[in-house]
Design a binder for these strands. Sequence first.
RNA 1: GUGGCUAUAGUGUAGUGGUUAGCACAACAGACUGUGGCUCUGUUUGUACGGGUUCGAAUCCCGUUAGCCACCCCA
Length: 421
Amino acid sequence: MIKAIRGTKDILPDESRRWQKIEDESRGILNTFGYNEIRTPLIEETGLFVKTVGEDTDIVKKEMFSFVDRGQRDISLRPEGTAAIVRAYLENNLYKAQTFQKFFYIGPMFRAERPQAGRLRQFHQIGIEAIGSNHPALDAEVINILIKLLEAAGLKNYQLKLNNLGCREDRKLLSKILKEAFSKRPTVRLLCDDCKRRLKANPLRMLDCKNENCKRVVKGHFKTAEYLCKDCKEHFDEVIRFLNLLKIPYLADPYIVRGLDYYTRTVFEVTAQNLGAQNAIGAGGRYDNLISDMGGPKLGACGFALGLDRMMLALTANENSMSEKNGLALFIATIGKTAYDKAFSLLNELRNDKISCDIDYENKSLKSQMRAADKMEARLVLIIGDDEIKRQEAVLRDMKTKEQTNVKFTGIVDMVKAKLE
RNA sequence: GUGGCUAUAGUGUAGUGGUUAGCACAACAGACUGUGGCUCUGUUUGUACGGGUUCGAAUCCCGUUAGCCACCCCA
């Protein structure tokens, strides 16, 4: 038997109902904030992610599903959403019609990590990208939307962490300062092996090392805010002011560093409880250099991505989930071939009138058909047998009141409609 | 990607080398035959896969696969 690929899973109808509900609610919220859905391909040229996410990031170095197609093109399944959206924004010259634009997306992303609860190789994100503005209100709005989506889904225990990485120059300065601080033998020896490597490749990542010893040592050497330029400092203050205006509680955490290279200035992360080590449920930030780096105009932008699979997990853990079935309006139970034929065409009429209805497909006994109707939570059951065919009328049973009435074949659709009203 | 733990009907589980692998729920069928839920009766379905040890393996060993936990990373 062929099984689903490692790290992928089926979202079965029971669960799918919950997904749809959350997606629908999210679309509604995003709509009120003026965001429009964009759908980009699941596959892109590998170079897109190498350039944007960063050559030295784990995502690109070891987590991408990449392959060479028959035309010898290097292609990858998208590991995240931002790069493709910026690509689409530039490729379709969207900025020429209007510079500032707000997008949202919902869909699967792919990363070849070792699977765990809350960490799949195909996982699903809902995210937004607001492109074309440096305004600090935008950062606050983006964060606000993330919070709104979480609350709409019913998530209770979450925490928002906020930081400012500074502009590209600030990041360089920070890297330089870190490198210098740990350039001498004795200080280097205090770091874990990973951090020794990070020191060379990507010093900023030393900031969020989980090793207690590293935390202490690195902490002792600097505080992020001190290395911010005046503009970045001001921007951060403004973002905080707007957040306060919206009464959004946050925790300033100078050790938040994102694993994607394009972030500048504001970065944030929302963690949820009950998810074990995979507790980052949503995260994002500003990326003011990405658009120009990709050959576009110099424009600021900000966005986030929310992990839907993780949110579902967190919701089940909170026991806030409920899966209500969409009960059937009508079930038609039949006895005999003639009755089935009559019922089958009747079904079509009812469905044309947007009445949800169904019939038996397994030649079951009347008793079993009634059981099936009950299981489907049918409100009404129409019973047609030989007697009814002779009289040209059917028995309509209300499943709740057990009340039964005879209805002429010609008046069935109207009668059912009236009963359902 | 590294280390560890786990794998028994659809689901949750019992079974620590010895008969036909047990239980609950679910599913299906039926209870004077044309009517659901409750009750009762019956039925179907399983040792992840592949090797090995042994007279004998769900049980011990090895490999594979998958899941889980931690790391790593991230949503």
